[in-house]
Computed example of a mutant assay.
Amino acid sequence: MRAYDAVVVGGGAIGMASARALAGEGLSVAVIDRGRLGGEASSAAAGMLGAQLEAHAPDAFYALCRESRAMYSNFAAALLEETGIDVEWVENGILQLARSEGVAAALRERMRWQRAAGDEAVWLDPAEVRALEPATADDVLGALYLPRDGNVHAPRLSAALRACVAGLCDVYEGEEVVAVERAGAGWRVRGARDVYAADRVVLAAGAWASPFLRALGIPLEVRPVKGQMLALRPPRGAALRRTVYDAGTYLVPKRDGTVVVGATEEPDAGYDKRNTVDGLAALAAKALGAVPGLRGGEWVRAWSGLRPRLTGEAADPVIGPWPGAEGIILAVGHFRNGVLLAPITGRIVASAALGREPEDLWLPFWPPARFAARGGDVRANTPER
């Protein structure tokens, strides 16, 4: 049996950022993943840092996203220094297109409350949209420009986090965790190959978290939501400089000149990551509708990822210690925002592991505050085995 201060179950961006933060506090840490670190949703993501794009109201989730976005410049610089890998962080802005009067009105309202919150949000008329991105559709009535939203190269982020974690922690890839059990005052993580003892266990298993939650009696469920994506290379003269978003479809330009287009949202696909003709055809049609200048571009590749969405009334992520199961720390349900929220989640997990009081910003996501406020039974079923 191998013993650690903390074992992180799940090696996506959330699990790796948590492990890095824990190791940075001087804890001995193991990271266990059923596959390769960063091999699932984290490296499949478009890499958007859309704190303003993803928010639908000036609420706690919006505040959390803004805080994590603000951390990204230093986060990316630190990963470059620690690993030599550039995650290609860029603050190039996002254009949310309005192609109907109803969407235009909704975007103007979004602009109003985001400005009131102190964010930058600019309304552009059609001529200003085409001046910034000439390849966009002729029927655009305007756009909301979010200059502070940006993106990273998700596979490079996963590679950088993996290299960093490998230098700070013990890494067990290809190790299927079969049980997390109480063992005296601590915990025992049973893998298919070995057993790992820990004072704390961080559950960051993404779309595969539900079996662990159920076994511990934690009344949360995470389901996979399949997202198909594609990459293309624009024809000469039609390169995008900013992310373009239209009716749920986003086109994210990367440093190598390709554009990542995403994503379908398929909650009933289970764990099937196969690309489908109809899914990719619909995605390509939406992309060309928003940016007709991409017609004639080169098809590069297609892939899919499984995003972890919490079911139930409140789908925001749950991050922090679980009441009634001392030493269990959750980092689950980040859905489309695992890449964006990785830096702040690492900070929250490390604070939970060290028994620090949560910051006010975290309370809506911090289990003791979030679930006690709902009046639910938050105790876990954690028998010793």
Rank of each mutant, 00 (worst) to 15 (best):
R2A: 14
A3K: 11
G10K: 00
A13L: 08
M16R: 01
L22D: 02
E25T: 06
S28C: 06
A30S: 00
V31T: 07
D33M: 10
G35F: 09
G35N: 07
G39D: 02
G39W: 05
S43Y: 00
S43E: 04
A45M: 01
G50V: 04
A51T: 02
A51E: 01
A55R: 03
A55H: 04
A57M: 04
A57N: 02
L64C: 07
M71A: 12
M71I: 02
M71G: 06
F75T: 06
F75R: 03
T83G: 01
E88C: 02
G93E: 02
L95V: 12
L97M: 13
L97G: 11
A106W: 03
R110K: 15
R115Q: 08
A117S: 14
D119I: 07
V122S: 00
V122R: 09
W123Q: 05
P134D: 06
R148F: 00
G150R: 01
R156F: 04
L157S: 00
R162A: 15
C164R: 13
A166P: 01
L168Q: 13
E175L: 08
V180C: 03
A183Q: 07
A185M: 04
G186F: 05
R188T: 04
R193S: 11
A197S: 11
A204V: 04
A204C: 04
P211Y: 12
P211Q: 11
P211W: 11
F212D: 07
R214Q: 09
R214K: 10
L216S: 07
E221R: 15
E221K: 14
G227Y: 08
A231F: 10
P234L: 15
P235L: 11
A239D: 14
R241W: 05
Y245V: 13
G248E: 06
T249F: 03
L251T: 03
L251H: 04
V252P: 02
V252A: 06
D256A: 06
V260K: 11
V260E: 07
V261E: 03
D268H: 14
Y271P: 11
D272W: 08
K273W: 08
R274I: 13
T276W: 12
L280E: 08
A281V: 10
L283M: 10
L283Y: 08
A284E: 13
L288Q: 10
G289S: 10
L294C: 06
L294K: 06
W299D: 05
V300F: 07
R301F: 00
A302W: 07
L310F: 06
A314R: 15
D316Q: 13
V318A: 04
I328G: 03
I329L: 11
A331T: 01
F335D: 13
G338W: 10
L341Y: 07
V349Y: 07
A350N: 02
S351Q: 13
A353Y: 05
A353V: 06
L354A: 08
L354G: 00
G355Y: 05
E359K: 14
W362P: 00
W362F: 11
F365A: 04
W366S: 08
A369V: 15
F371D: 13
R374K: 15
R379P: 12
N381E: 09
T382H: 14
P383Y: 14
P383M: 14
R385N: 12
